[in-house]
């Protein structure tokens, strides 16, 4: 019996060990590294010097960082509010199963199976000032005065990248739609008998019933907003004049330049912001969901 339990412990440890080792390598050590080195002046080779919060102060004082953090919040808002609202609208329409709804659902989700990189390259071609389809389309309509160097001008660069992401609603639409379609049909029938029209049904039955999935979607979308990197990196690389930069781009540039101190101050800012945003959304909107569910 003792042998058996000793063996059990041995196996238990062996089963856990790979996961714990990898977790230490890729989460515990990196998080520690980020916060410790963010207080150092260090290029990875020469002796490190402790500088306290100076790296954070430097970052927050630089224009490229200020634009980046502003843009991350614009991304966060655009995805968590605008994209989720559009996804919910389309999900509610499709959940009523109009003609061709399966086909449309399949098409809307299509961009989500294609890599962000390929999608971004396609939009680079669409926005291109020389041969891009968007300018050519405007010229075709006789609207030459509306053509732009979309990704090169300060006024249009950020909106162009945002639009390219926000209107790809497929992923959240699918999640929200599944939740909408699981609402019992009888609820709607009862409302119809009481004379509620479609709009009222959606407002007073569907929306409250899908609240928890909306909060989950918003949390995910907010996290994507903070993590945004690919499309901006490929379309503008943060330009013109840092106007489209995000924290991920800053971090990549600093890491490549082996400026570990400032890079990890950006990394630390990202990690802390991520935790704050998720906690905030969960504790404000999420609490109301939990309270509602407790009532039911």
């Amino acid at each position: 019996m003792i042998v058996r339990s000793g063996q059990r412990w041995l196996w238990l440890v062996l089963f856990l060990a790979p996961a714990m080792v990898l977790f230490t390598m890729y989460f515990v050590y990196p998080l520690g590294f980020v916060f410790v080195t963010s207080t150092l002046e260090w290029n990875g080779v020469s002796a490190a010097k402790f500088v306290g919060l100076q790296n954070y102060i430097d970052n927050f004082g630089s224009r490229s960082f200020q634009f980046s953090i502003r843009n991350n919040f614009i991304w966060l808002g655009s995805l968590a509010v605008v994209q989720i609202a559009l996804a919910a609208l389309v999900a509610m329409i499709l959940a009523r199963q109009p003609r061709g709804w399966r086909f449309l659902r399949t098409v809307y989700f299509l961009p989500n199976v294609i890599s962000q990189v390929a999608i971004a390259m396609m939009w680079a071609a669409l926005y291109n000032a020389e041969y891009g389809a968007i300018n050519q389309f405007l010229e075709l309509l006789g609207l030459e005065h509306l053509t732009h160097n979309w990704l090169g001008e300060i006024g249009t660069a950020l909106p162009s990248i945002l639009i390219q992401q926000v209107f790809y609603i497929g992923y959240f639409m699918i999640i929200i739609m599944a939740s909408t379609m699981s609402i019992p049909e009888s609820y709607y029938q009862a409302a119809q008998i009481d004379g509620a029209n479609v709009l009222q049904q959606e407002l007073y039955i569907t929306l409250p019933m899908i609240r928890s999935i909306l909060v989950t979607s918003m949390t995910l979308a907010a996290a994507y907003g903070l993590r945004h990197f690919e499309a901006t990196f490929l379309l503008t690389d943060g330009g013109p004049a840092h106007r489209t930069s995000v924290l991920g781009i800053q971090l990549y540039k600093m890491t490549s330049a082996l400026d570990y101190g400032h890079a990890n101050a950006v990394g630390g800012t990202l990690v802390v912001l991520g935790l704050i945003v998720i906690t905030l959304i969960r504790s404000t909107l999420g609490r109301r969901v939990a309270a509602d569910e407790a009532k039911q």
């Binding site: 990196p30 998080l31 996290a223 890079a263 990890n264 800012t269």
Partner: peptide, 13 residues
């Protein structure tokens, strides 16, 4: 954890 924030440590690791 926003994995993108861990670029420098992963690079070093």
């Amino acid at each position: 954890v926003p994995i993108i924030g861990l670029m420098a440590p992963y690079f070093r690791l």
